[in-house]
Computed example of a mutant assay.
Amino acid sequence: MTEFVNRTAEERRQEIQANAAGLGIDDAYISLLVDTFYERVRAHPLLGPIFEEKIGGNWGPHLARMKDFWASVAMNAGRYSGKPVPKHKALTRVQPWHFNIWLGLFRETLEETAPAPAAVPYFMERAERIAESLQLAMFGLPGLDAQKAQANKHG
């Protein structure tokens, strides 16, 4: 049987930070990861134009925000306080399959830059959850609209 341990938020934060540090994840790595990844995004023939349309010449602030975001996700740094769902819902050109491309580029970047092999699944688990959450917010559940339409047809 699994034993549950009650921890304070601070104890949980320290545990996450120690785990990240043990994988070599620090602010310097987050900076490298974000800069390298977004260079690839900008160069990508499908993703690049979507990002460029929205971000244009404001890449500096966007990269700083993404570094805070990933530091908060990976190291519980608590520096990100944005609202990503409304920002992503406003991107009308984004399709569900774009997330697979994004995740593939992210994995490729991690595999080439990660400070330790275990950092790849550490980040990918979080990136996949984030992508799934954004897809649900942007596009709903697959087949849900068809089920609703079918129910309304018979209801």
Rank of each mutant, 00 (worst) to 15 (best):
D35R: 11
A137K: 10
T113C: 11
A127P: 07
E128W: 02
A118V: 00
G78S: 07
D145W: 00
F99G: 08
D145Q: 14
A18E: 07
G60W: 05
R13Y: 08
H44E: 02
E108D: 14
G143H: 04
I130F: 11
H98S: 12
N19I: 00
A114D: 10
A151R: 11
Q14C: 05
R40L: 05
N6M: 11
E111Y: 03
G24Y: 14
A127F: 06
L46W: 10
H98D: 14
Q135P: 02
A118M: 08
N6G: 11
W97P: 02
K83E: 13
A64E: 14
V5H: 01
H154W: 01
L105K: 04
K54E: 11
V41D: 01
I25T: 02
H44T: 00
H98V: 07
S133A: 13
R65N: 15
G22E: 01
G22M: 03
K54T: 05
D26A: 01
E52C: 03
A127W: 04
T2A: 14
G82I: 05
E125I: 05
E39R: 15
G56H: 07
S133G: 15
G78T: 01
L141M: 13
K148S: 08
L136A: 13
A151G: 12
E132Q: 12
L136C: 06
F69H: 11
W102N: 08
W59E: 03
F51W: 10
P45G: 06
D26H: 04
E10D: 08
S72C: 04
L110C: 12
A77I: 01
A127H: 07
L33R: 04
I50H: 06
P45H: 03
A21F: 11
R129A: 13
S133H: 13
